[in-house]
Structures are given as C-alpha cells and as structure tokens.
C-alpha cells in the first residue's frame, strides 16, 4: 500500500498550491500582477487556524481563512487600482505585511493543536482497494480545489463575464473604450485571488498539519506565483503543474528516506527543477505561435477624465 500512501500525500501536498495559484491565475488574466500571494496565504492560514480553534468548526475556519486572504487583497486593490500604485512594489510590501499580521494573529496559538479536517468516507466506494481512498477518501478541500480550477476554466472560456475578464487583461484601454468597468473587474479578480490564496493558506493548519506554527506557508505562495507563469496562464496546465510539483516533492522525500546517496539539498531542489522543465517544455512546444501572457499584465490603468 506504499503507492496509495504516496498518492494520498501527493494530493494533499499539491492542494494548497493549486488553490492559491488558481486565484492568482484569475487576477493575472484580468491584468493584475499580485506578488503578495505568500502574504495572503499566511494571513489565510493564521485566520483559518484562529477561526477553527475558537469555534471548533473547520468550515468556519476555512471561511475565516478566505476572508483574511480577501481582506489583504482588498488592501492591494486599494493601492494598485484605486491609487494606481506600482503593482510589483505593492505586492512585495503585501507579503511583508502579511507575514507580520499572521504573526500577530497567531501569537496566542503557537503550539496549539486542532482536530484536522475529516476525510471523506463513502461506504464500499472508499473501500475499493488501492484507488478508493485516493479518489473518494480525501478531505473536502481537495474536492473544492478541483471544482475550483474546473470552474475557472469554464468561466474563462464559456461565459461572457470570463471573456470580458480576459479582454480587460489583454488590452485595458480598448476594454475601457468599449465601456467595460476595467477597475471594478480587476478589483473583483484581485479579491477572488485573495480569497483563493487565503483558502490555500488555511488548508495548511486545518488539514495538512493541524497545528499552528508561524511562517508555516514556507514559500508556497511564491511557488504558486511561478506556477501561473510556467503554466502560460492556462487552467489545465496549472493543475498539471501543481500536481507535478506535489508529486516530486513527496517522491524526493521518500527517496531521501530510502537513503539514496544524493545530497539532500539537491533532492529538495528537484520539485522546482522538474516543474520548470516540464512546463517550459510544454509551452515551448505548443506556444511558439505566440505567448498568451495577458498583454496588460502589471500595468496600471488610469482612465481619462
């Protein structure tokens, strides 16, 4: 049953990345580069743990995580959209702010534990040998993350609102000229990105390792950011990249455990290398016809008066 155990951990390791990266993908498709994903995740993690610890409910904890991430994103939206501040500088500042705020929120909870999110159990189905627990025995967050990325694909390519969002990211001046509310659409996309990052952060203390330590996101926000770029802003490739990263992370842990004679630093770097190599290879092979990077990405929009 080693393979089953590995697959289970691969999926749980990938889920926080997938959640946070999904939100960032939507924000970047609308043309906003929010480098504060790490900050929003860690605030989501702190709020999520505090909520769950005080209320005793994982669901309420997740909600607190979402709200925490969105609240930090609202600060970013105010700065970059309302005041047209530089997105790169604001995003970096947001991460520093988020790390500080999370330490403050989590100060009273250090070393506390909660009961983690329960795993789904459907009689008989979950008992199917081998794949049963992998497919039907995960915690609720996993199913939410899969539904989320599928929903984002459907939204972007099958609805008018998604088309407008892509248009705003491609050419904000034209979208404005056609009468679309560029700043409002971007604000909503940023808030959605913050909510997703918050949920991804909350996953860590609520399901992955059910206790609070400060700084427990450990750079996952930066990986989520990189995944969006290497996935060429496409939802399908994003899911692939997130699971690939999770898989190599877990496999190299097992490899280290098995005592291979490879320096551990090199093994720890492996997930990053593997993900970058695979996703770059895909975009190079398929994307030579033109880069799908949103053309207005990172540019401030100030309408004429």
């Amino acid at each position: 049953m080693l393979l089953e155990a590995v697959l289970l951990t691969v999926i749980t390791a990938s889920t926080p990345l997938l959640l946070a990266a999904s939100g960032e993908l939507v924000a970047e498709r609308a043309g906003v580069l929010n480098l504060g994903v790490e900050g929003m995740m860690i605030v989501g993690a702190a709020c999520g743990f505090a909520g769950a610890f005080l209320s005793g409910s994982i669901l309420l904890g997740a909600l607190c995580g979402i709200l925490g991430g969105a609240a930090l994103a609202a600060v970013f939206a105010l700065l970059t959209l309302g005041l047209a501040a530089n997105q790169v500088a604001s995003g970096l500042a947001l991460t520093i702010l988020g790390v500080g705020v999370s330490g403050l929120i989590g100060a009273g909870f250090v070393g506390q534990k909660i009961a983690g999110a329960p795993h789904l159990y459907i009689p008989f189905v979950t008992d199917i040998p081998f794949m049963g627990r992998v497919i039907f025995g995960q915690d609720g967050f996993v199913y939410v993350s899969i539904t989320l990325i599928a929903g984002i694909w459907w939204f972007l390519y099958r609805t008018r609102a998604g088309l407008v969002l892509r248009a705003v990211g491609d050419n904000h001046a034209s979208a404005h000229a056609l009468g679309y509310p560029v700043l409002r659409i971007r604000a909503l996309a940023v808030l959605f990105g913050g909510a997703c990052a918050g949920l991804g952060g909350a996953y860590l203390p609520l399901a992955y390792t059910p206790f609070w330590v400060s700084g427990m996101t450990a750079g996952r926000g930066w990986i989520a950011l990189a995944l969006v770029v290497f996935a060429s802003w496409l939802p399908g490739r994003l899911a692939l990249g997130a699971y690939l990263f999770g898989a190599v992370t877990i496999l190299q842990l097992h490899a280290q455990g098995a005592g291979l004679g490879v320096p551990s630093q090199l093994m720890t770097a492996l997930p990053y290398l593997a993900t970058i190599v695979v996703l770059v290879a895909i975009s190079w092979a398929r994307g030579r016809a033109g880069s799908p990077a949103p053309a207005s990405l990172g540019l401030a929009f100030v309408p004429d008066r």
Binding site: R160, L163, V164, R166, A167, D170, N171, A173, S174, A175, A177, L178, Y180, G290, P292, P294, A295
Partner: peptide, 26 residues
C-alpha cells in the same frame, strides 16, 4: 477607432462579442 480597440489574443468572433450589448446571445 483609428488605433483599433481590438484584443490580440482573442478571436474575431470574441472581439465582436465584446462590442455587443450584454443581452446578445453568444
């Protein structure tokens, strides 16, 4: 417009759709 208000990454039909009213079916 003189400088076209088009979206490079979208198709012709998607570009047209963006210029139509919300009620128009896609």
């Amino acid at each position: 417009f003189q400088h076209f208000s088009l979206f490079e990454q979208l198709t012709v039909a998607e570009n047209v759709a963006l210029g139509l009213d919300r009620a128009t079916p896609l």
